[in-house]
Amino acid sequence: MKKEYVYRAFERFWHWTQAALIIFLGVSGFEIHGSLHFFGYENAVHYHNIAAISFLILIAFAIFWHLTTGEWRQYIPTWKNLRAQAEYYIFGIFRNAPHPTKKTVLSKLNPLQKIVYAGLKVLVIPVMVITGLLYMFYRYPQKYEVLSLNIKNLEAIAILHTVGAFLLVAFFIMHLYLITTGQTVTSNLKAMITGYEELEGEPHEKKKYPEVNEPVLSK
C-alpha cells in the first residue's frame, strides 16, 4: 500500500464545483419544473440562469484541462472487467472480496465508472447544455427587433432538458452511495478532498502528466 497523489488540485476544484452546481441546478430547475418549492419561482429562474452560465464556464475549463493533461483517456469505455466489476457490486462486495480492478493513478476509474462517466460527458451533459441554451435563447415566433431564435414550440426542448435532469439527479443519488464502496467507507471521499489516496501496489513514478508536445499516454 502506498499513499499516492490521485486527484490534482484543479480536478478536485472542478469536481466539487460541478457537484455543487449540479445540485443547485437540480433544485432550481425542478422548482421551475413545478416539482418543488424552495427558492421561490422568480429566484429559481434567476439562480438557474446564473448557475447555468457558471456551469458552462466550468465545463470550458474542464474540457481544456482534460485535453491538455490527456486525462480524457481515463474515460474511454472498456469491456474489459466490466462484467467482473458488476459482479463485484452484486456479490463480491458482500463477501469482502477484493476490488476486481486495481485503482492506479493512470487508471483511476473502474470499467463501470468509465462507461457511466463517459455517458454523462458525451450524452447527458451536452444534451443539458444544448437544450438549456436553447431554452435560454429561444423566443416565441415574433417579428420585432429582438434578435433570437424563432422556435415554434418549447416543448421538445423542455422535455429533453427534463429527461436529462432526472438522469442527473438519479446519477447524483447513486454516486453518493457508491462513494462508500471504496477501500473503506470514507476513503473515496477523503481522496477527493485531499487528493491523496492509499493505493495497492508499487508507488507510481513521479511524472504523471506528459509534457506539452509529447504524445499523450501511448498505450
Partner: peptide, 18 residues
C-alpha cells in the same frame, strides 16, 4: 397549444423520472 414552464410537463417523462 404551447408549453408553459411550471404548468406543463410530459406525463411519460414524469413517470420515467420518478
Amino acid at each position: 397549444g404551447f408549453y408553459l414552464p411550471g404548468r406543463d410537463y410530459n406525463a411519460s417523462v414524469e413517470l420515467f423520472g420518478k
